[in-house]
Design a protein around this nucleic acid. Structure first.
Lengths: 186, 186
DNA sequence: TGCTTTTTTTGACAAATGTCAAAATCGTTA
DNA sequence: TAACGATTTTGACATTTGTCAAAAAAAGCA
C-alpha cells in the first residue's frame, strides 16, 4: 500500500473508491542529503510522508540555524503555514539523509475534504494530532531544562540521537554544542 | 447571537437548522477570579469561549508555575488533551478576573461532526488554526530572547500587559520577575 | 594504510540571569 | 488620611552558559 495512504488510514477508514482516487493524486520524490524540501518564505503546499530517510526543520535567525523538529520514516509532515493556510512557510526543511517521500497537494486534499466526509474527518484528526505534538513540544521547551530535555530524548528517541549529529541536537535543545558535550560527559 | 456560535461561524457557514441545535447544547458559566476552569490531570472536555474576563493557562513544575497562554474576550479555548483526545489535561486553567463563558461538550461536538459536513469542516479549521497559534508560540519561544519576546508583546498585545501582573508576564516569558523589571526599565 | 575532513571534546574567560533580601511603590479599605 | 497587603523595583552575589580557540577523536576516502 502507498505509504501516504497507510498513514491516512491511521486516522479513519477510507472506501476503496477514495483510495483509488488518492492513488492517482499521490506523487513520489527522491532527494539527496543536503537538498531542501522547502525554504522559509516559500509556499510548498503539500502533505508529505517519508518512506525512508531523515529531514530536519529549522528557523533561520541572525544567520543562525535553530532546529525545530526531525522527521523520520513513516512520519507525516508538512509546514503548517503552506499546508493549512497557503501562506509562506516560517521554517526551512532540509534532508539530512538521502530520502524518499510521497506527497499530495493541499489543493487535492481540499477537494477530497469537500467530496468526502470520511476524508474531512481524517483531515480534522490529523490537525488535532498535530496540535498534540505541538503542545508537547511547547511543554518540553517551557518546563524542562536543556539537560532534562536531552535525557527525555535519550529515553524516548534514542535512535534519533544516533542518526543526528551533536550540533543539530544542540541546536534543537537550544544550547551550544559545547554545553551539550559537557552534559553528555556525565 | 450566542458568542460561541459567533466564533464557530468565523470558520465556516452554518445552516440555521444546525444553529438551532447548537443553541440547545451550549451552556454558560460564571466564575470568579481565582477559580479554576480545570486542573492538570482532569478531563474537562469542553470547547469554551470567553464572553468577558481573563484566564491563564499554566504548567505546574517543581512547585513552580509556568504560564503558557492567556485567554481574553472572544477567545476560543480548551485544553488540547481533554478536548481532542478525552485524556487528562497537562495544563491548569485559572481565572485572573471574574469571567463569563459559554461552552459545548466535545461529545456534543463529535455528534455534530458526524451528522454535519459543515460542522466537521469547522472543527477541522479550528484545529488547523490552533496549529498555527501553537507553531507561532514555539517559534517565539525558540527564536526570540525573553527581551525580544517582551517587546513583541508590547507591540502585539499591549492591552494584555496592562491587565496581567508583572509576575505572570515574567513566568510567561520564562524569566524571573526581577529580570523583567530590569528589562522594562530601559 | 595514510591523509583529509568532519565531528566532538576540552579549557579559559566574559556575559547574562537567577536568587535572596530589602526597599519602594501602588491600590484598596477602614 | 492612615494602614495594610500586594506588586514592583533595586542591589549584591553566585551560578550557569555562551564564546572563542585549540586539541582530540571519528569518519570518509584515495
Amino acid at each position: 500500500m502507498n505509504p501516504l495512504i497507510k498513514q491516512l488510514k491511521k486516522y479513519g477508514n477510507l472506501t476503496s473508491e477514495i483510495e483509488t482516487e488518492l492513488n492517482e493524486k499521490i506523487k513520489s520524490l527522491i532527494k539527496q542529503k543536503g537538498d531542501f524540501l522547502l525554504k522559509e518564505g516559500q509556499i510548498v503546499s503539500n502533505l508529505f510522508v517519508i518512506e525512508k530517510g531523515l529531514v530536519r526543520s529549522f528557523y533561520n535567525i541572525n544567520e543562525r540555524e535553530i532546529n525545530v523538529w526531525f522527521g523520520f520514516e513513516s512520519g507525516i509532515l508538512g509546514s503548517v503555514m503552506p499546508l493549512f493556510f497557503s501562506q509562506p512557510s516560517i521554517e526551512n526543511i532540509q534532508f539530512l539523509e538521502d530520502t524518499t517521500l510521497y506527497y499530495i497537494s493541499s489543493n487535492d486534499l481540499e477537494s477530497f475534504y469537500k467530496s468526502s466526509q470520511e476524508m474531512n474527518t481524517i483531515g480534522r484528526k490529523m490537525a488535532e494530532e498535530y496540535c498534540k505534538i505541538l503542545e508537547e513540544r511547547s511543554f518540553l521547551l517551557q518546563t524542562h531544562t536543556a539537560e532534562q530535555h536531552y535525557h527525555w530524548l535519550l529515553k524516548n528517541q534514542p535512535e534519533a540521537l544516533q542518526r543526528i549529529s551533536l550540533g543539530h541536537i544542540a541546536s534543537y535543545l537550544g544550547i551550544s554544542q559545547e554545553t551539550l558535550s559537557r552534559i553528555r560527559k556525565k
